[in-house]
Amino acid sequence: MILDTPMPSKFTPLPPELLQTHPALSLLRLAALSAGPDGRLDDETLELMFTQVATGALVGMVAADAWPELVRGLMGQVPSNMFRTLYACGALTEVLPDVAAVFGVPQIADDPPQVDIGQHLLCVLDEAARCGAPLPVRFAAMAMHVGKSDSPPEHLPIHYRHVERGQPRIEAMCERFGISADCRELALLALVECERVHRVSEIRAGPVAAMLERLGAFDRPQHFTQLMTLCACDYRAYPRRTTHDYPKASLLDIALKACAAIDEAGLSADGLQEARAAAIAIAFGSERWSNSQA
């Protein structure tokens, strides 16, 4: 159940200008506004929205027109409120079915040993808002778990091959809504790499060098920074970690600074990778190579 706290009793009137647009966009605008400073919508407004959805307000919705309203909510102060509102009025499964499908699905954690992926997703989004993360980070937080909704039940809370299931779903979502390339690229990168970043170890210098290259640390620093922001938000969204620093960010920062000191002149691609691994090993005080992938 997504709605775990009561709605405020204050009535939130429907803005007149919204009533003049397509009903679906009016509904999505209200959901997006609930992520803003005025907070969640009241029961009367939610009941009206529920009636609109039940009577076909979302039929014929043009996804590309809906995306700006979803962006408004994602970029709000409390993005989770938009998703709670969409769920409460029955719209989430119609507007974002792949995202709706992860609610109620368990995922392994530390303490407690399992979390609801959907609830965790809401916490990640709110953490991203607290640190002022840009849209690509927030979209990736919303999208990167979509391959876990139909993991074989006998494997839960582990999600084998969720990357293979998630990639076409993220690509289809981006195509449907006309989502920008930077959002798409970060979501696909997070799908593959976020859990690897969480597992990165200082005793595996070679794979760390390879990871930094995959993450764009050397040639796409903004992309790398956004992924690390997402990973930090994901880490702090777990119970009892809200105020913690993200330890893997510090580890990769040490590795990146070690690589920055390398004189790359005359080095081949393989030679550069070897030099990076050696520099990271010295910085970590660890073995240079490992057969396992970071």
Results as ranks from 00 to 15, higher is better:
A217H: 02
Y87I: 13
G56S: 00
M61T: 08
E195I: 00
C259D: 00
D150K: 13
P13V: 00
I262F: 03
C231F: 01
V115I: 02
V71E: 10
H198Q: 10
A181H: 11
A283H: 00
A187I: 02
A100N: 01
R204D: 11
C233L: 10
D234V: 02
A64N: 14
P247Q: 00
R220T: 07
E202K: 13
D4V: 12
L3V: 13
L272D: 01
T229P: 03
L18Y: 11
R165A: 10
P23Y: 09
H22G: 01
L96F: 03
P168L: 06
W289I: 12
E171D: 11
A283V: 02
D219A: 10
P152C: 12
R220P: 04
A187H: 02
M49A: 04
R214I: 07
R288K: 15
R196P: 12
V95C: 10
M142Y: 07
M61F: 00
F218R: 06
R288V: 10
E185S: 12
M61C: 14
L48W: 13
S9D: 14
R161E: 13
R214N: 13
L191I: 09
S250I: 11
D182E: 13
V200A: 09
Q226P: 12
T93V: 15
P153M: 14
E202C: 15
S9P: 04
D270Q: 15
I117M: 09
P79L: 09
L58A: 04
P8S: 06
H244Y: 14
F284R: 07
I254R: 12
V105L: 00
A63C: 11
T21V: 14
P23S: 08
R84L: 04
L96C: 05
K257E: 15
S180K: 10
E127A: 11
A172M: 14
D111Y: 05
G206E: 10
A88M: 13
L125C: 00
H22S: 04
A249D: 08
A91S: 01
P23C: 07
M75P: 04
K248L: 09
A255H: 05
P153L: 15
K248Y: 10
V59P: 08
A88S: 12
Y235R: 02
A265H: 12
P153R: 12
D219Y: 07
L227E: 00
A128F: 04
L215Q: 02
A249S: 09
E202W: 14
P112T: 05
Q273V: 07
S250M: 12
Y246K: 06
G285D: 04
G118D: 00
P168R: 02
A279Y: 05
A32F: 01
L191A: 05
Q293R: 13
G147C: 13
M1I: 10
L156K: 07
P239G: 08
A172E: 14
L215Y: 00
R72M: 15
E213G: 12
E264N: 08
A100D: 09
G285Q: 06
A88Q: 13
A281H: 01
R236L: 01
N81W: 01
R241C: 06
R214M: 11
P15H: 09
G216K: 08
M211D: 01
M144H: 15
A101S: 08
D263C: 00
S151Y: 05
D110M: 08
A129D: 02
I280P: 03
G147E: 09
A190E: 06
I2L: 14
G76M: 02
L252R: 05
L212I: 10
A237K: 03
